[in-house]
Computed example of a mutant assay.
Amino acid sequence: MAEILVAYATKMGATKEIAEAVAERIRSAAHQVTVLDVADVESVEQYKAVVLGSALYAARWRPEAVRFLKRNAAALARKPVWLFHSGPLGDDLSSQKAPRKVRELATRIGAEQPATFGGRLTPDTAVGFFAKKMAQGPMSGDFRDWNAIELWANHVAEQLVAAR
Score class of each variant (00 low, 15 high):
residue 38 V to Y: 09
residue 30 A to V: 07
residue 24 E to F: 02
residue 51 V to L: 00
residue 95 S to V: 09
residue 108 R to M: 05
residue 22 V to L: 08
residue 130 F to K: 13
residue 110 G to Y: 11
residue 144 R to K: 05
residue 27 R to F: 06
residue 114 P to Y: 09
residue 93 L to G: 01
residue 42 E to L: 12
residue 36 L to Y: 12
residue 43 S to R: 10
residue 12 M to H: 15
residue 101 K to H: 13
residue 91 D to K: 02
residue 156 V to H: 10
residue 139 M to Y: 11
residue 155 H to M: 14
residue 53 G to D: 01
residue 146 W to P: 10
residue 37 D to F: 04
residue 101 K to Y: 04
residue 124 D to G: 06
residue 97 K to W: 14
residue 53 G to I: 00
residue 84 F to V: 01
residue 63 P to C: 04
residue 145 D to C: 07
residue 119 G to H: 08
residue 69 L to Q: 06
residue 157 A to Y: 06
residue 25 R to L: 03
residue 73 A to H: 11
residue 78 R to F: 08
residue 161 V to K: 08
residue 86 S to Y: 02
residue 28 S to T: 07
residue 75 A to Q: 11
residue 80 P to G: 03
residue 25 R to M: 06
residue 112 E to R: 13
residue 75 A to V: 02
residue 68 F to P: 00
residue 64 E to I: 03
residue 118 G to H: 08
residue 48 K to H: 13
residue 48 K to G: 14
residue 1 M to Q: 13
residue 142 D to V: 01
residue 12 M to D: 11
residue 40 D to Y: 12
residue 20 E to H: 04
residue 29 A to P: 00
residue 100 R to I: 11
residue 114 P to G: 06
residue 76 L to N: 03
residue 109 I to K: 03
residue 39 A to E: 10
residue 89 L to Y: 15
residue 133 K to H: 11
residue 85 H to E: 13
residue 101 K to N: 14
residue 1 M to P: 10
residue 75 A to S: 09
residue 49 A to I: 03
residue 64 E to L: 03
residue 129 F to N: 12
residue 126 A to M: 06
residue 105 L to Q: 07
residue 131 A to N: 15
residue 16 K to Y: 00
residue 133 K to W: 09
residue 153 A to P: 15
residue 163 A to L: 12
residue 1 M to V: 13
residue 71 R to Y: 03
residue 151 L to K: 12
residue 151 L to D: 14
residue 22 V to H: 04
residue 156 V to L: 11
residue 31 H to T: 01
residue 134 M to Q: 08
residue 164 R to M: 09
residue 103 R to C: 09
residue 90 G to Y: 09
residue 98 A to T: 10
residue 123 P to K: 01
residue 37 D to W: 04
residue 84 F to R: 09
residue 162 A to I: 14
residue 139 M to A: 04
residue 43 S to P: 03
residue 77 A to T: 13
residue 34 T to N: 10
residue 144 R to Y: 05
residue 15 T to F: 01
residue 102 V to Q: 01
residue 133 K to Q: 14
residue 79 K to A: 11
residue 161 V to Y: 01
residue 160 L to P: 00
residue 38 V to T: 04
residue 100 R to M: 12
residue 4 I to Y: 01
residue 23 A to C: 07
residue 67 R to S: 07
residue 156 V to G: 02
residue 22 V to F: 03
residue 34 T to E: 11
residue 6 V to N: 02
residue 67 R to F: 07
residue 68 F to D: 00
residue 53 G to K: 03
residue 157 A to S: 06
residue 110 G to T: 02
residue 48 K to Y: 03
residue 100 R to L: 15
residue 35 V to F: 07
residue 137 G to E: 08
residue 147 N to E: 14
residue 96 Q to M: 15
residue 155 H to T: 15
